[in-house]
């Protein structure tokens, strides 16, 4: 089980990083979203994996760690706000210049190739 979650985090990170390194805004935004998943799952997993023991107080004796969950919950909502802002900035840049490159100066250095 652990290896599945760990590898999922790894694959999300790798995919996110690769897309973040693309040259157009849209893939970069998707890349950031993938990284957000990776980070959220990573933080969530810091409470270790527990199956079938939600942090709702009942007669049960063991519960999963509620704190990472609370932190990740707000992170998810905030990430929506951030994504929206970034998308709006990207959109504004594209509509203003008819160019959706993320790099400041295409035509300079290796990044322009």
């Amino acid at each position: 089980m652990e290896i599945l979650v760990a590898s999922a985090i790894g694959i999300l990170t790798a995919g996110g990083l690769y897309l973040v390194l693309r040259m157009r805004t849209f893939p970069v935004i998707l890349g950031v979203s993938l990284l957000t998943y990776a980070v959220n799952v990573f933080l969530f997993a810091s409470g270790r994996l527990t199956i079938g023991a939600p942090p709702i107080l009942t007669d049960a004796t063991t519960y999963t760690d509620p704190l990472p969950q609370a932190l990740v919950l707000t992170a998810i909502v905030i990430s929506f706000g951030m994504t929206a802002v970034v998308v709006m900035i990207a959109l504004g840049a594209y509509l203003g210049t008819n160019d959706d490159h993320v790099d400041d100066a295409p035509g300079r250095g290796e990044d322009a190739v």
Binding site: E2, I9, G10, I11, T13, A14, L21, F42
Partner: peptide, 15 residues
């Protein structure tokens, strides 16, 4: 390469 390195690092740490 960068992406895979990052992914492997994240995976290693999580695991």
């Amino acid at each position: 390469t960068v992406a895979v390195a990052g992914g492997v690092a994240a995976m290693g740490l999580s695991y």
